[in-house]
Design a protein around this nucleic acid. Structure first.
Lengths: 163, 163
DNA sequence: ATACTAAGTTCCAAAACAGAACCTGGTCAA
DNA sequence: TTGACCAGGTTCTGTTTTGGAACTTAGTAT
């Protein structure tokens, strides 16, 4: 299967990855959350080649994750800002940070911490259940096919057991 | 900057991506959470080439995200299971699913839903603050440099303003 | 005129990927 | 006791995608 076909797969992870699941794209978004907005700043901070950066930014604008807004007229210049769709990516970033902090900090502690302005504390993101409010343990979660899949139940089935 | 150098960057997102930030790796993990454990099953379900699958699985085992455990002796066969480190990736997956469901479902509803056994309901993951328990809004979060970064404040600084 | 700036684009070599065929124990049934 | 079958890989070849550096463009500033 090719990467370009991935957005056809009836799976929200596959679709999310089809849009964002590129190394550089996620790092661009990281820096966007850290308030980076301009081409050269992204390029310098990330060490990405200008070629790829231009391509990724164009794609993100096209998909409405970023928007290109003018910040001066003479000469005309644009900057890249998160849209609502882009801002909503934040929970993925927090989850990535939490995982990296927990498993890959090399014993030195987190490189970056986050303060929750509402309560004033440094915090860690906790995934909770929208229905009961409790923290969610992976082993307490059962996947169920949803409406978006029932439409096409002829998908390629895994075959394991011999007849 | 090359991809292989990414794990050197003092950023937990970069480090997480250095391990997991590959298209196929994340999909392998997705299926691991859906109880896939064997080489041929991964291969069939994902449509990944055997070559890449072998490579990715080996890498995940080496990094201790998956472990290779025997499931029969004659002939010797192994399956791949999530370790604690792997299981802990779940919050990232949930965040990816939630984002994909919200922004990319094509109006058809989520392909897959999740039931929280503890309370019995279909739920959506909500990111909350470990300190106050409230849901976290990205605009209420301030990043602060942490201990893992203070150790090396001579890192390549972004340079914007001329002298 | 000349230099500078932000934001790209173009070119080429190196690396990664897709697809298919092939290999390696080992079992099983005739 | 050979031939088919299986799981789990490895090898090969051609296509795509990256990485790195140089070049372009439109406008400002000196």
């Amino acid at each position: 299967m090719k990467w370009r076909e991935l957005d056809q797969v009836p799976c929200s992870i596959a679709r999310s990855l089809a849009v964002m699941g590129d190394r550089w794209t996620m790092l661009i978004l990281r820096n966007a959350f850290l308030r980076t907005r301009r081409f050269d700043d992204f390029q310098t901070q990330l060490g990405i080649t200008r070629h790829l950066l231009a391509q990724r930014l164009a794609k993100l604008v096209q998909l409405d994750v970023l928007s290109k807004v003018p910040y001066q007229d003479r000469p005309p210049r644009y900057e890249y800002r998160l849209t609502e769709m882009g801002r909503d990516w934040y929970s993925v970033q927090l989850a990535l940070v939490a995982w990296g902090d927990k498993w890959l900090d090399g014993g030195k502690g987190p490189p970056l911490q986050f303060r929750h302005q509402a309560c004033g504390h440094l915090f860690k993101p906790v995934v909770t259940c929208s229905e009961c409010g409790e923290a969610v343990d992976p082993r307490e979660v059962t996947p169920v096919t949803g409406p978006g899949l029932k439409a096409l139940q002829s998908a390629p089935a895994p075959k394991r057991r011999r007849a």
